[in-house]
Design a protein around this nucleic acid. Structure first.
Lengths: 214, 214
DNA sequence: TGATTTTGATCAATCGTTTGATTAAAATCG
DNA sequence: CGATTTTAATCAAACGATTGATCAAAATCA
């Protein structure tokens, strides 16, 4: 269908990396083009040259988010398993890999703050990422949930339930400062991510068991 | 201990209201003092007069967040019920009122976007709100959880579990654009908030039941 | 009246963008 | 092939616009 988007190279890639990091850290408006250029070890004018301007760099960062998440969590095309046990297994595996990716992967590190701000401002980037990433993944999870519990995949209840599952996971990243503070953690590394993933998996199984009975 | 903070009045209150809304909507740096003053129907210089500057207005907005949430969800002082059923009932009631407050209350509407940005930037405001609101509420919820399940209130597992409960709730507000889009909702009003609250309450009971068995 | 609050004007600093010059590699030509 | 032209990329410098802050004067209040 669509070609796999190629990773940017050279100065353009450096600018995107710096933009992703700084936009997420301080916000789009709070980050000056000069600061981005300095971080990317190039001249301010490069931004206008490569992306047409600051707003163009923002779009390029959004595209990079889609690209990175797509390569990291991209098995959307595979057929949804019909057997409940297989569906449950895939859900747990997805939850665990998403947890690891979102909380500890250095590739994902700048992505979450950036996207969080974009979702908050509700601009074009959000539309892009929603259509390319969020909805497909949510749909697949709903289908897996249906296969696991025998309920209808696209019913409002199923969709909300899947959101409650994803919400648990994402909060540990969005509210990371809160969590680490309250838990007394110095860092949120692989060990802590594993503990979180175990809890999320246990919650998943509890909710599935309840829904299967009804 | 500390006096109940009094609600601001007059021009200062108008500036705080405008600041809360605009800071949350577009971000602190993206909002100009002139824009805030115009929204509050006053002069730019009023900001410096009342709050010492833009940063002072930001602090005042943070204090207002604490004040509003404190008056809306503030029964921290009451003794934690010892009976499991009573503890469960309070947890469900808290979850439901938090859900209603956070998703539909016009008083809370500007608070979440504002705080979300402040948490992301991790500044002084976050420290303030964490100490005054987040940790006390989380502690109480942990104590309730302990009363309900017989587990230890301050164990890492309990603390994480409570975060997973809160995370479900907060995601429906943080990811509101995602949720409404995917659910096909025009708005997130009392009816939709009720549906969400019912689901969260059901999840709460499922998790409690599981933890009581172990 | 004296104290408090609001206002309009002005400041230096910083913003995103544009400009023309410069360089080196690629393409074209004789 | 060597000479020439074209192209892509980067740079320092400067642009007008906007930023937060400041202050004296005006207005309002008690």
């Amino acid at each position: 269908m669509t070609d796999p988007p190629k990773a940017p190279e050279g100065t353009a890639a450096d600018l995107i990396a710096s933009g992703l990091r700084l936009f997420g850290q301080k916000g789009f408006a709070a980050t000056s083009t000069r600061e981005i250029a300095a971080a990317a070890r190039t001249n301010v004018a490069s931004i206008a040259y490569h992306f047409g301007g600051k707003e163009g760099l923002r779009r390029a960062c959004g595209a990079e988010v889609i690209r990175r998440m797509g390569t990291a969590l991209g098995n959307h095309g595979a057929p949804v398993p019909a057997a409940p046990q297989a569906a449950i297994a895939e859900m747990e595996a997805t939850l665990r890999s998403m947890c690891a990716f979102v909380t500890t992967s250095p590739v994902a590190a700048p992505l979450v703050p950036f996207m969080l701000r974009e979702v908050g401002e509700g601009g074009v980037i959000f539309e892009l990422v929603y259509g390319a990433m969020i909805e497909p993944m949510h749909r697949r999870f709903c289908a897996l949930w249906a296969a696991a519990t025998g309920q209808e995949a696209e019913s409002p209840r199923t969709r909300l339930l899947v959101f409650s599952l994803i919400g648990q996971l994402l909060y540990f990243r969005v509210g990371r400062p809160v969590v680490t503070r309250r838990m007394g953690w110095d860092t949120l590394g692989p060990a802590e991510a594993g503990t979180i993933a175990d809890l999320l998996a246990a919650n998943l199984h509890s909710l599935i068991e309840r829904e299967r009975r009804s």
